[in-house]
Design a protein around this nucleic acid. Structure first.
Length: 465
RNA sequence: GCGCUCAUCGUCUAGCCUGGCCUAGGACACCGGCCUUUCACGCCGGCGACGGGGGUUCGAAUCCCCCUGGGCGUACCA
């Protein structure tokens, strides 16, 4: 075990999205690589917006991606006592103060400052007033240093400095008594012993507000690594209108978790020219040094390509299990049909997602083939009757039905009759599947079996035009 | 507005720190060809970028400055 302690701290106000998943992944990889500890913390201080469903969705998504935590999940909503204690401590030490300005007054001051070209920060009305009556409605503000500067050496972005007079005394406890994000994140990261905070770029600006609080509380300041944002195709922040942003939506779309992990890690990180990484390789090769500084655009095409790669190379048994679920979604019960593993093998190289595979597998389980109009008109013509009957004859003469025996049967038929593939092949394909594109005839027949294959061919003969 | 930050093919990126090996490499997408019993897979090839302007230097994608553009923040959200 090393001393490295990292954490992923999502707020449960929705599903785990692409950006959050990547942050979680980076943290996970770092922890595994250094044999450190990966802590999961649920940031639910905003009681109104946090939901149990979101927590479950996030946990489920992390589980799907294989990002197991070593500690947690911890819930901030269960730690209010600790936060209260720390706030009282700051109050007692004069490092925080009660403020009775109303939201309306603040809003008004902000607007005025902005209109006059000034900074919309808190003007410090209550800062220097004598201690405010604790019985009056009030918030608690952290007394932020107004001189000097706050800086930190970001592990990804390098040194970042802020002039302290840019920041104001932020609210750490609301009127309703609940603590706010910027404060609890400090208390939690400190008390949970987090040594490296890896989080989204959007928190860079929060960092200089948090550092003085670590110091005021007497905590050591952790290291920070801010990972760049993920943008949509138009370079604006990734959102629903750019397509699915929920990680779990991709599972339902037929994506494999390893494809998602592989895609996510390469968005912002690279390792020479390598594109394909297993989780184990990532644990070995991932490092913050190779994380880029600039925001990246989410590219669904590349994710799709990776998914196709993992489907092509995936374990057939596992894929069959997953395919079963997707077939069910299409109303197809795989039981009683052809061996699913064989079905997967025949479709592995032609499906980019499991949903595509399920759709491509439809014909295997169809009782009655629905012919594509064009395919039927082109391939199921009257002159195919004799060739198709020959096919049936030769297939039924086989002793066993394997890929090899089917191939031999066709070879024998062609030798005996002089028929060329074009005279029966396309027709067989349409008879078997209803369409002009499919796995190879031989393979399909081997999978469907002689009886079913011949039944389909005979049915096609009935409808020749 | 102000603050922080980023900037290589359409996209993800290598190269940048330690200038010359860069007529800028790889991947996705796209286009063409090959393979082929269809569709795919695969293979081969093509298209395609250092945002602009100033410097520094014998030499800059690489160093410096300015401009422009993008992102983030500026909440009693996280």
């Amino acid at each position: 075990m090393s001393n490295l302690r990292v954490r992923f701290a999502p707020s449960p106000t929705g599903y785990l999205h692409i950006g959050g998943a990547r942050t979680a992944l980076f943290n996970y990889l770092l922890a595994k690589k250094e044999q450190g500890t990966f802590v999961l913390r649920i940031e639910d201080t905003d009681v109104a917006r946090s939901t149990r469903e979101s927590v479950d969705a996030i946990l489920q998504a992390m589980d799907w991606l294989g990002l197991s935590c070593d500690e947690g999940p911890f819930y901030q909503s269960e730690r209010f006592e600790l936060y209260q204690e720390k706030i009282e401590q700051l109050l007692a030490e004069g490092k925080a103060y009660r403020c009775t300005c109303t939201p309306e007054e603040l809003e008004e001051k902000r607007n005025r400052a902005l209109a006059e070209g000034g900074k919309p920060k808190y003007d410090g009305t209550c800062r220097d007033r004598a201690a405010q009556d604790a019985d009056l409605p009030h918030v608690v503000r952290f007394r932020f240093p107004q001189q000097g500067e706050t800086s930190f050496n970001d592990r990804i972005k390098g040194v970042i400095r802020f002039a302290n007079d840019e920041l104001d005394d932020l609210i750490i406890r609301r009127t309703d008594g609940t603590p706010t994000y910027n404060f609890v994140v400090v208390v939690d990261d400190a008390t949970m012993g987090i040594s490296l905070v890896v989080r989204g770029d959007d928190h860079v600006n929060n960092t200089p507000r948090q550092i003085p609080m670590y110091e005021a509380l007497g905590f050591p300041v952790p290291e920070f690594a801010h990972v760049p944002m993920i943008l949509g195709a138009d370079k604006s922040r990734l959102s629903k209108r750019h397509g699915a942003t929920s990680v779990m939506a991709y599972r339902d779309l037929g994506y494999l978790p390893e494809a998602m992990v592989n895609y996510l890690v390469r968005l912002g990180w690279s390792y020479g020219d390598e594109e394909i990484f297993s989780m184990d390789e990532l644990i070995e090769k991932f490092s913050l040094e190779n994380v880029g500084k600039s925001a990246g655009v989410f590219n669904p095409d590349k994710l799709l390509w990776l998914n196709a790669h993992y489907i092509k190379t995936g374990d057939v048994g596992r894929l069959a299990g997953l395919l079963r679920g997707h077939l069910l979604e299409l109303g197809i019960d795989a039981d009683g049909g052809p061996v699913l593993e064989a079905v997967v093998r025949s479709l592995q190289e032609r499906a980019q997602t499991l949903v595509e595979m399920a759709e491509g597998a439809r014909f295997y389980f169809a009782g009655k083939i629905e012919y594509d109009d064009k395919a039927r008109a082109k391939c199921l013509t009257a002159d195919k009757k004799e060739p198709l009957l020959e096919v049936v004859r030769h297939l039924e003469a086989m002793r066993e039905c394997t890929l090899e025996s089917v191939e031999n049967a066709f070879a024998a038929m062609m030798a005996a009759t002089g028929l060329k593939f074009g005279q029966f092949g396309p027709a067989v394909r349409v008879a078997l599947t209803g369409s002009m594109s499919s796995p190879s005839n031989y393979e399909m027949i081997a999978i469907l079996g002689v009886e079913e294959s011949c039944r389909r061919i005979r049915a096609a003969i009935e409808v020749l035009e």
